[in-house]
Simulated assay, not measured.
Amino acid sequence: MFFSIIIPLYNRPQEIDELLATLTQQTYNQFEVLVIEDGSVKDAKEIVASYQDQLDVKYFFKPNEGQGFSRNFGFERAKGDYFVIFDSDCLIPSDYLEIVSKYLFEHQLDAYGGPDAAHESFTPVQKAISYAMTSPFTTGGIRGNKKHIGQFHPRSFNMGVSRAVYEKVGGFVLTRLGEDIEYSIRIHENGFKIGLIPDAKVYHKRRTSFSQFYKQLHFFGRARINIYKHFPSTLKLVHFFPSFATLGMILTLLLNVFYTPLAYICNLLVLLYFMLIFFHSWQLNKSIKIAFLSVIASFIQLTAYGLGFIQDFWKRVIFKQS
């Protein structure tokens, strides 16, 4: 099996350098790499060129359209039997393609997704953000957990589709705001088999500060409403939970202002929830500092997503704004 690895890139030359360095270490070597520079001001042309002797890598520069359409640009030029999509802020374990190749031959998946994890080189903040995005107590395990809730939808930081899928379904029709979930829904609807490859993990850096993380998760909350506008039946009760949690915390603050008896119950519930996150993160990361930062990251994950969801639900669903 020959893989085409497609990486959209926008103003992140340092990230693509680190990602390509990990691809030079792959134990499975039947692959090409297509780097799609999406109208960047800080381009990575010279960095990509420095890997020409180590990788079958091609560099393309195109006008800025967003990551979804940049992946389509790569699909159109890919030679592989299977297209693998990575975000530029990922590090790829050396046995990644070997694991994927073996799994696909044994299970015959038309499309797949894999989990993400925190690399040992990540900062404490990045490890806390990684926990918030993968914990069963925050995202319910939907981002690559074996026991995820509901139908599995691969995420574009670590996703693969067969050439047969692309030829029948096409590429992305959204360039952002939930484009990967929308794409996987169409793959499902066309009768293709999608599955999780549990061991095909990547190390996903995500954001390096809590302010950047807030902006990203607020965007994700809005993206869920964007997906709903295309596929109304996909909006489930579980997608409202961050909004309910956000409204609950706002209510708790208001109850404390007025010193009502109900405030003590709400305070206790909030305290118990974040204590659960603290001790769970401490157990996983073996660090009190990361456990404390995980509480902050989880609070941001819930409230940022919840506020983004509420904002666009109010505007686009209640008031029908485009």
Rank of each mutant, 00 (worst) to 15 (best):
M1D: 09
F2D: 13
I5P: 11
P13V: 11
I16N: 06
D17N: 11
L19F: 14
Q25N: 03
F31Y: 05
L34V: 12
D38T: 07
G39S: 08
K45E: 15
V48G: 14
V48E: 15
A49K: 08
Y51I: 02
Q52W: 05
Q54M: 04
L55A: 10
F60G: 07
F69V: 03
K79H: 15
D81G: 08
F86K: 01
C90D: 07
P93C: 06
Y96V: 03
Y96C: 08
S101Q: 15
K102P: 07
Y103N: 03
E106Q: 04
H107G: 02
Q108C: 02
L109Y: 14
G113S: 09
T123S: 15
K127Y: 13
A132P: 11
T134W: 06
T134Y: 06
S135R: 00
G140A: 13
G140Y: 01
I142T: 12
G144M: 06
H148T: 11
G150S: 03
H153N: 03
V161Y: 00
V169T: 08
F172D: 13
T175P: 02
D180V: 05
E182N: 01
I185Q: 02
R186W: 04
E189T: 02
F192Y: 10
K193Q: 07
P198Q: 09
A200Y: 12
K201D: 13
K205L: 14
R207C: 15
T208P: 01
F213G: 03
K215A: 11
R222P: 01
N226H: 05
Y228D: 00
S233C: 04
S233M: 04
F240V: 00
S243K: 02
S243Y: 08
M249A: 05
V257Y: 09
P261W: 12
L262I: 10
C266P: 08
N267Q: 11
L271G: 07
L272W: 13
F274V: 09
I277W: 09
F279G: 08
W282D: 04
I288G: 10
I290Y: 11
A291E: 10
A297G: 13
S298N: 05
F299P: 08
Y305G: 03
G308Q: 09
F309I: 02
F309R: 00
F313E: 01
F313N: 00
W314P: 00
K315F: 00
R316H: 14
F319G: 00
